[in-house]
Every structure is written in structure tokens, then in C-alpha cells.
Design a protein around this nucleic acid. Structure first.
Ligand SMILES: [Zn+2]
Ligand SMILES: [Zn+2]
Ligand SMILES: [Zn+2]
Ligand SMILES: [Zn+2]
Lengths: 135, 135
DNA sequence: GCTTGACCCTATATATACTACATGGTTTTT
DNA sequence: AAAAACCATGTAGTATATATAGGGTCAAGC
């Protein structure tokens, strides 16, 4: 299988596959005489694993760690679950931060009724910080 | 005022000020004979405006647009409020995406009880995609 | 006069996870 | 044979800074 086929199969850009190889997430495939990469089913599996982890928002570094766990089948899986727990905690932190931000933004938005000049815009005043609409 | 003073006053790294200047968000200040930048109160105001916008999660590009509105005091402020509305909508989209992700992650987390080997870890199986715990 | 430390300058590299381009070689199709 | 499609490497771009390298400037103390 050449890189274009693999890319189409996995729904990934060709460049992305080469990028994962450079990052050490995909092992370097064999090369044909002309230098073309040739992949086997194993590579396709690994690529799908990466993409699946990415769809869960994991970083490439986290994915690399998970791969190393995969290569130690006898080890207790506590480390895997801890990694996932940290990842979930981080997602929750992001959500919480964004919710705080959303509230601040709505307060700011409430400072203008949309029918003024830029000079008197409550939103712009709020951003300038002169009058403080926030406690 | 030199760059170090301005940085301390605004609670910003010196590099960040130079970075904003390169990005066109801060006007190039005058230089002393030795090449040192000298700032006035106006610069401090502009820097605080940028930082305040950043604390609301706005991009540097959005901030640039807001600055251009600021320089047109007579224009109706509708554009400002629309920019803010778009920004709020984007924050809400991010929150929604992250909440979907959080649910998926919790489902995945429920696939393992923490007391197995990596080989049998439900989390790892879920990431490998062989058995599909998701609809 | 000289050293030390604090401050300033530019230019470049790093982080993330790709994506796009430039340039050139190879294969396949027409 | 020519054109289209594919592959290769290497570079640069995205966003928002932060960090480092290597060097110039300035004020104080000895
Ligand atoms: Zn994570
Ligand atoms: Zn307004
Ligand atoms: Zn925005
Ligand atoms: Zn497990």
C-alpha cells in the first residue's frame, strides 16, 4: 500500500502521515526501489489509533505515551487510566474557564444597546477599562 | 518611559510588547539616540486595551479590528457589537464541543475498572476501535 | 579607568498539529 | 510521446507568545 492509498483509507492528508512519521508516532515504512513508502495493515491500524485518540482531543505526546503502554501488555493498566483521568480533568478545566469567559462576555455585551456611535459604545468603553462594569 | 517600565506597569513581558509592535497592534514608539524605545501614556493605554481584550479571549486580529473602530468615533457601533456577538458565539461553540468530548471521554473511562493489564484495558480497547462502545 | 549589573537591541528558535508550497522525480494513463 | 497523477524532500506558514544567543548601553562603585 502506498501513502496515497493509506491516506484515503484513513481519511487523512498525505502530509499528516509523513508528519506522524517524523514525530515518531508511525514507524518508518519500507521503501520501494524508487523511494516510495510502502505500508502494511499494521501501519493502517496504528494510524487509525492515532486518529481515534486525536478525536478524543489527546495530544500527540499523550498518544506516544499510550503507544508505549500498548507495547507493555503485561503491565497493570493503572497508568492508562490515570492518563485518561488527567486528560478529562484538563477538558473540564477548559470548559469551566470558557464558561467564566462566556459570563464575562455577556456582561460586556449588555453594556451596549447597539444604537450608538463608536465613541459612546458601551462595549468599547468596557474594553477600555475606564468605567468598570465588572466587580 | 522605557520598555521595561511599560512592561512592569502593564504586567506584560518585554518581548510581548515588542511582539505587539511587530504585529502592528502597538504603534512604533520614538527611539532615543541609543535606539531604546520611549513610550508615552498613550502607548500604555493601548497596551492595556490589548491585554483587556486578550483576557476576554479575543484574537490579535479581532483586537486590530476593534482598534480601527476606535479610530472612527463617528461610525455607528453596530460593527463592534457584531464582532462581540461572533466572538461569544465562537466561545459557545467551543464549550459545546468540549462538553460533547467530555461525555465521550467519560463513556470511554467507564470501560475500565483500573485493575487489569494493559492487554485487557477497556480504555485501550476503546481507543483501538475494535469493540465499539459508542453508537 | 574598569568592572559589575541592569537594561536594551536584533534575530532566531521553541511550543502545537498540522497544512501548503516549491521543486523535482516516477508512474500511469491517454 | 505527452499529460495526468502520484511520490519525494525541504521549507514556511498558522496563533500567541516565550526563550535564547550575541551584542550594545548605561549608571554605580572601587
Ligand atoms: Zn490531554
Ligand atoms: Zn455598542
Ligand atoms: Zn473571537
Ligand atoms: Zn484500564
Amino acid at each position: 500500500m502506498r501513502i496515497g492509498q493509506l491516506a484515503q483509507q484513513a481519511g487523512v492528508d498525505i502530509q499528516t502521515i509523513r508528519f506522524y512519521e517524523r514525530q515518531g508516532l508511525l514507524p518508518p515504512p519500507n521503501r520501494e526501489d524508487n523511494g516510495y513508502r510502502t505500508y502494511k495493515a499494521d501501519h493502517a491500524d496504528k494510524l487509525l489509533f492515532i486518529r481515534r485518540c486525536r478525536s478524543f482531543g489527546m495530544s500527540l505526546e499523550e498518544i506516544g505515551v499510550l503507544q508505549s503502554y500498548q507495547e507493555q501488555p503485561q503491565q497493570p493498566c493503572v497508568a492508562i487510566n490515570e492518563l485518561l483521568d488527567r486528560h478529562i480533568a484538563q477538558v473540564r478545566n477548559q470548559i469551566a474557564s470558557l464558561q467564566v469567559l462566556e459570563n464575562q462576555l455577556m456582561t460586556l455585551r449588555g453594556c451596549c444597546d447597539n444604537e450608538r456611535q463608536n465613541l459612546d459604545c458601551g462595549v468599547l468603553s468596557g474594553l477600555l477599562g475606564g468605567d468598570k462594569p465588572f466587580s
